[in-house]
Nucleic acid binder design. Structure first.
Lengths: 151, 151
DNA sequence: CCGATTTGATCTGTGCGCAGATTATCTGTG
DNA sequence: CACAGATAATCTGCGCACAGATCAAATCGG
């Protein structure tokens, strides 16, 4: 009945697998981000897409959803969904690209820019508190080798 | 219109924030785990709960769902849902605890133990490939400071 | 013993995350 | 021009992840 006597030899237990640690740490970090952004009525992904849209549009060349997804590292479908939520909140505006009627150009509204500014501060503060205990440069160095290219 | 000229001074871009890197790296790792476990018809969370249940029951003291959730670091509600799926697949069995009729004792079935053995190998292989490029001990050291206690 | 509180499991509802399919549009080649 | 293939956005459907509520059973103080 899988009572384990025969398992102890080849099943040493979860121990400290880097994968499990990575997973748990990120879930914890996500909860911290969620809490930091809740007062602004933003989820973490909504924040990432809003900030990414602002970043990409900083030189007057607002992106379409595919470009935004590539920058943010999110799925195209999910980007579509989340952007629709941001639009419903009035934080971004979508209009059909005059040069490609399939594509929708994404612009951050003034309200969106204002929320984003406050969100960036909240996220940076929460991030600093979360990563305070560790050597950030060292962690970034390790993660950059694992993060892979933006899809 | 938030075109960015006024933002460049105080919005330096996403850069390499450790939080974003952590998030992207974990999403990437999750996709690797998903692919590694797909042939066994298991998701990553299902694997974690199955393996955790086996681990906790290794000495003939099978856990209830709260204990399992604590070990696996998952939400109690989600643990309930996922365990129901594992039960539907015949990989675990649930029975009411005779000493506490609210609680359900979770046992890994022989079929579940067999799948778990193969899954452990698949996950360890995929993990080794994923974390190959980096110093695992260093990464584990950093993550352990951030992972927090199991809730 | 009894009411108050706690605990174990589940439900509703929202929001990612992703696979697979769909529709409309664009682009390249003959 | 025509048509094959690629691309942008969206849809269905499943499975986490979590907040908040529900309900029954256990436990504790009096």
């Amino acid at each position: 009945m899988a009572d384990g006597q025969d398992l102890n030899t080849r099943f040493s237990g979860p121990s400290e697998s880097p994968g499990l640690l990575l997973w748990r740490t990120t879930m914890r970090w996500q909860r911290v981000m969620t809490a930091a952004l809740a007062p602004l009525d933003l989820t973490h992904v909504q924040f990432v897409l809003l900030a990414s849209a602002m970043w990409l549009g900083r030189n007057g060349e607002p992106p379409n959803q595919v470009q935004l997804a590539a920058q943010a590292g999110t799925e195209v479908k999910m980007t579509s969904d989340v952007v629709a939520r941001l639009e419903a909140k009035g934080l971004i505006a979508r209009e059909t690209d005059p040069r490609d009627s399939r594509a929708k150009v994404i612009r951050v509204t003034p309200a969106g820019a204002a929320v984003a500014q406050r969100a960036i501060v909240a996220v940076e503060t929460a991030d600093a508190a979360f990563f305070g205990p560790v050597d950030e440069a060292q962690l970034v160095g390790l993660l950059q080798q694992l993060a892979g290219e933006i899809r």
